[in-house]
Nucleic acid binder design. Structure first.
Lengths: 158, 158
DNA sequence: AATAGGATGAAAATGGATTTCATTTTCGTC
DNA sequence: GACGAAAATGAAATCCATTTTCATCCTATT
């Protein structure tokens, strides 16, 4: 494969630096995976990313996608979340403020939420127990507006 | 098997009622699983519960433990949590106030935490986005006091 | 005690994620 | 440019918690 490694976005530079800093090398596979990752918005699974990558380079293997996704997480570009649907979903974390998620239990629609006072309280809770807080996971589950309407309609029919 | 089904605790009654209310029957296996569950404190996996159950009745199968654990969750006696360690951990939920967890990332020590103002804010966040909040998961990760000391000692040595 | 449907255990299946391993690439060095 | 050690890759195998299958057994009601 004859590739020219030009990755211009800031995020891409971070990844390249991460590789260099850890004695890892850029490869055509990593390049296409990272580029595809950076172009993809929202929350997606490793399998979905693999499918997108294979649209460009069909011979990329799933193991490589899983491996590169791990590098993306370690380099700080990606974050992995378990929304309880059985697969890990990934999202961008570079250039995105920290946030938690509000998830519709019916259609899976996800809204990013932040609340400074919750974050402060979490810190206090940890300290009160002598823990040094390193990170947290908060997920709110409920019915989104659209699904509330659908549910109401269904109930009216029955 | 000749069993006399006497389960006297309130929790046990709830389970029996749940079975009756759903056309399910009490069986020796369910009885020993529920009794063992009720005697066990803290957080434990299905496999750990299976081992405890088999101390009393070795021929109980793991599928039955998984199935009964599901009934326990549905009946409101148990709660299942994913602490990110690869297995679901269960804990009692009857007679236990709602709480979230503060987990040591090193020794897995878990502390139950509650914060009314966080709960209120979660409700507000959901409402602000038009969602009807049904439940939430919050997990705080950090280093517990003991593990902080261990880490400091290790760092001093190196 | 007959019977229908539920419950059980052993074993197989599931499925996302990881590992293995033979092969291919990368990249610093000659 | 060519060399060679170390890293990276893809296909397939493996892992492992959980679920499902299925033949058999039990329960509750008649």
């Amino acid at each position: 494969m004859d590739f020219i490694f030009v990755m211009t976005s800031e995020a891409a530079k971070i990844f390249v630096d991460y590789l260099a800093g850890n004695g890892l090398s850029m490869t055509p596979q990593r390049k296409v995976i990272v580029e595809t990752f950076l172009e993809t918005k929202g929350h997606f699974s490793a399998e979905e990313l693999l499918a997108l990558v294979q649209k460009t380079v069909p011979e990329v293997g799933q193991a490589t996608v899983y491996r590169t996704l791990k590098l993306l997480v370690d380099s700080g570009l990606a974050e992995s979340h378990d929304f309880g649907c059985g697969v890990a979903l990934y999202e961008h974390s570079y250039g995105h403020e920290h946030h938690d998620h509000l998830v519709c239990t019916r259609c899976q629609k996800k809204v990013e939420v932040v609340d400074e006072s919750i974050e402060k309280r979490q810190e206090i809770l940890a300290r009160k127990n002598g823990y040094v807080l390193t990170n947290h996971r908060m997920m709110l589950f409920g019915l989104c507006p659209a699904c509330q309407k659908l549910r109401d309609k269904e109930e009216a029919e029955s």
